[in-house]
Design a binder for these strands. Sequence first.
RNA 1: GGAGAGCUGGCAGAGUGGUCGAAUGCACCGGUCUUGAAAACCGGCGUGCCGCAAGGUACCGGGGGUUCGAAUCCCUCGCUCUCCGCCA
Length: 423
Amino acid sequence: MLTLTDIRNKRDEIEKALAKRNLQAGETLDAILKEDENRRACQSELDAVLAESNSISKEIGNLFKSGKREEAEAMKVKTVDLKERSHELKEKQGQIDEELKQLLYKLPNVPHPSVPLGMSDEDNQVESEWGTKPVLADNAVPHWELTERYGLIDFELGVKITGAGFPLYKGKGAKLQRALIQFFLDNATDAGYTEYMPPLLVNEASGIGTGSLPDKEGQMYYMPADDLYLIPTAEVPLTNVFRDVILKEGDFPIKLTGYTPCFRREAGSYGKDVRGLNRLHQFDKVEIVAIEHPDNSYDTQKTMIEYVQGLLEKLELPYRTLRLCGGDLTFASALTFDLEVWSAGQGRWLEVSSISNFETYQSNRIKARYKGEDGKTHLVHTLNGSALALPRIVAALLENNQDEKGIRIPEALRPYTGFDYIS
RNA sequence: GGAGAGCUGGCAGAGUGGUCGAAUGCACCGGUCUUGAAAACCGGCGUGCCGCAAGGUACCGGGGGUUCGAAUCCCUCGCUCUCCGCCA
């Protein structure tokens, strides 16, 4: 969430920047400022009341000690009103804090100045394109036919065991998953990311920390018996490592990676895009996360993008890099780049990675800070990106590399798969 | 799952109703001394909020209660440890 200090100091700037998201935030901002004023007034009064009552209590103690019992008893009366008033004020302050929090939760992050104007994904800016789209034979097919033809994935069995969106990988299909995970993790650790293997279920505090909760869209699987949530991405446990942590200036950059399955209910997303591997309830992903000093976070984002681009190049997948426009930017992000691979069998681009700088939006929620050279604490910047999500990579790999003999495995992956063709 | 013990500042650990935001030790930072370092000595050393500041206020696992006053007593939730049970 945005910091109160920023809203206080840069209200108009923020309103203007949020307009890029096609959001009229003026009313909310004013409500926040007003509520903030109430909060401070309330706090000042409460502090004064408590100060008086504390000093009376101290006096009573002294009187008792020096044996002046009656005087002490008489003094107790004076605290009655103060006590009542302090209870009132505490309750009022609790309400104000809650309302303030709700208002702050409503506001998305302020877009970076470089974010282009736009309403939807159609307005995203293509930054660069790499590779050549393969020219496939006339009888080329989309991946869902290939996975069936070569016995790689059984969607029907997944339905039988669990339900739609839970594919069952078999044989070389399963091995390919394992190979990709290993390939991504090895590359990430070589690039200086420390591997973490986090829990797949998280508590409420972690969900709130990354903004996954409150889950307005009902995207997370919830286990009521234990009050836990299945993670929608490794970002949730990995970022929460730094919840309520105060780092030192010299700790940066902190770079983590982790493989996890990801669970998403995808409530409300039905239609043509859900075919095959395009959208699943459970999928595998290797995530990279960076915790950075505010001065360096945009440089770090750049290196993260280049890193993921390198992965796609090793996999010989044609891709393009998009700078997301204001209308397509996710709630918590200040600047996001999407990487899309060309899916030759479907004849369209598939989003495989989203690399975002959240600046202090997440760290303000999780209270991830560092002690600066000025001796004060400041919020860190958090970043993350997929590196990479498997299903669409698999879709493109299968489709783009199909020929009359079967499916060719890219060079870089062969040490991991142990086979160079699927036939 | 059952029984017991516990949860205090970066760590260790004292504190069982007032003078406690909290002793002491270690770690850390600054200084004196030294050619340099170590040792020794001196000083500093949690976080949030309000305030221009002085200062005030809150926090001893979370929440609630008793009391003029709670780290300390009570309730509740969470977690950790030990023993037992079950188990990959």
